[in-house]
Amino acid sequence: MAILAALLAGLLFGLGLVVSAVVDPAKVLGFLDLAGDWDPSLALVMVGAIPVAALGFVLGRRRPRPLLAASFQPPTARALDSRLIRGAALCGAGWGLVGFCPGPALASLALGAWQSWVFAAAMLLGMAAHAVWNLRR
């Protein structure tokens, strides 16, 4: 059941990215280009998503555990450290360079643009590089 639930959740996430056209980097760059022909659509994607997600976290508080798993596992990191800032700054630079972030890059693989595949492969390499860098520190 947990596998089916995860498949459904992934499907809904991908459908959301397709419906809102966030899978199109041109759409994303239009949102990030405040000095150009600004397209505020992406802000409304967040306005649509956050309250529904928040409802899930509120509902979760009333239950001892999730319906299909042993326990709630919220992110454990608490510190507002330089790694958070540096990581987010690097991620934002890559996002602004092309217009892909992890979800849309993967959800656009089946849309026929070879660029998604190149970006996704480099993204996986970047994640692997971080894992190696993290071990060496």
């Binding site: 996430f13 959301g16 990215l17 419906v19 409802l55 899930g56």
Partner: peptide, 24 residues
């Protein structure tokens, strides 16, 4: 379309938390 897509993404996050106890 942005609000609709956002609601779908939010629903995915809701299911991940309520059913699996994970953030999406």
């Amino acid at each position: 379309a942005a609000l609709q897509g956002g609601a779908l993404i939010g629903t995915s996050a809701l299911l991940c938390w309520v059913l699996l106890g994970r953030t999406a």
